[in-house]
C-alpha cells in the first residue's frame, strides 16, 4: 500500500501533465490572440517621428579630402523616402500620427550660403506629403517635443527614424555648420536620460540612419528605454536619392 500510494498520483500526474501543458499553451494562445488586437488598438494612438538633421556648410567642408554634404538635401530626401514608406504602413490605422522634425538653423544657413530658399523647399515637400513638419532650433526643443509634444500616456512614440550626422556617441544636428568639424546642437548618449523613459512604446521601431550609431549610441538607447535601436556599425551613405545604404564593411545592429 505504501509503495503503491505514490505510484497513483505519479501516474495521474504524468497523464495530466501534457493535458495541463496543452491547456496552458492553448490559453496562452487565446490570450495572445486577444491581446494582439487589443495592443493594436492601443498602438493606434501613437506617433511615428522622423528627424532630419542639418547639412554642413560648404564654407567649412570645401576642399577637404572627406568633404561632407555637397548636396544640401541628403537628410531631407532620405527622410521623405522614409515618410512615404511610413505613410503606406499607416494606411488603415487612423490613430497613427506621422511627424517630421527638421533642424532649421542648419538649413537656414546653408540656404544663405547657396542663396536658395531651402526652408520653403522643405515646407513644400512636407505639404506634398501632407505630413506635419515641425522645426526645431535646439536639442532642448527636440527633447521637449519627445517628452511632451503629445501626452505620451495617450500617444506614445511608436516609430523613430533619424537622418543626419552622427558618431558612435552622438546624433549631431549641425555638424560642420556652425563650427568646423564640430556640432553645437546634438543629442549625446549621456543626454538620453533627459528623455522620458515612457515616451516610447516598448514595441517602438527605432532606427538611426546615421554613421556609427550602432557602435555605442544604440546600446545606451536600449539601456535607457528598453527599446532596441537599429544603428550602423560603420558608415552609411546618402548618395542615392532614397534611403541611405551601408558603406562597404558596415552592418546594421541593435
Amino acid at each position: 500500500m505504501v509503495d503503491s500510494f505514490p505510484t497513483v498520483p505519479l501516474r495521474r500526474r504524468r497523464s495530466r501533465g501534457p493535458l495541463r501543458l496543452g491547456l496552458t499553451l492553448l490559453s496562452a494562445l487565446v490570450w495572445m490572440s486577444g491581446y494582439l488586437p487589443l495592443s493594436a488598438r492601443d498602438f493606434a494612438q501613437q506617433e511615428w517621428i522622423v528627424i532630419s538633421g542639418g547639412p554642413a556648410l560648404r564654407f567649412f567642408e570645401h576642399g577637404k579630402a572627406d568633404s561632407h554634404d555637397k548636396y544640401w538635401g541628403n537628410f531631407i530626401r532620405a527622410a521623405v523616402a522614409r515618410l512615404e514608406q511610413l505613410e503606406l504602413q499607416a494606411q488603415g490605422k487612423p490613430g497613427i500620427t506621422l511627424t517630421w522634425l527638421v533642424y532649421r538653423p542648419a538649413y537656414a544657413s546653408r540656404g544663405r550660403e547657396e542663396k536658395l530658399d531651402i526652408l520653403s523647399n522643405i515646407v513644400s515637400q512636407a505639404n506634398a506629403l501632407k505630413i506635419p513638419l515641425l522645426w526645431f532650433d535646439t536639442t532642448e526643443q527636440l527633447i521637449n517635443y519627445l517628452n511632451g509634444g503629445h501626452d505620451r500616456k495617450v500617444m506614445p512614440i511608436g516609430g523613430f527614424d533619424y537622418f543626419g550626422h552622427s558618431n558612435r556617441a552622438c546624433l549631431m544636428f549641425d555638424y560642420s555648420n556652425g563650427f568646423d568639424n564640430m556640432s553645437k546642437e546634438c543629442l549625446h548618449e549621456k543626454d538620453l536620460r533627459q528623455i522620458e523613459r515612457k515616451a516610447f512604446l516598448r514595441q517602438a521601431a527605432v532606427k538611426s540612419w546615421g554613421c556609427h550609431s550602432g557602435e555605442d549610441f544604440a546600446q545606451w538607447w536600449k539601456r535607457r528605454f528598453g527599446v532596441p535601436m537599429v544603428g550602423a556599425v560603420g558608415r552609411t551613405d546618402y548618395a542615392t536619392a532614397s534611403l541611405p545604404y551601408l558603406s562597404k564593411g558596415a552592418k546594421w545592429t541593435q
Partner: peptide, 9 residues
Amino acid sequence: PNIQAPSAL
C-alpha cells in the same frame, strides 16, 4: 515644447 510649425501648416 516651443517648436514652431511652419506657417503653411
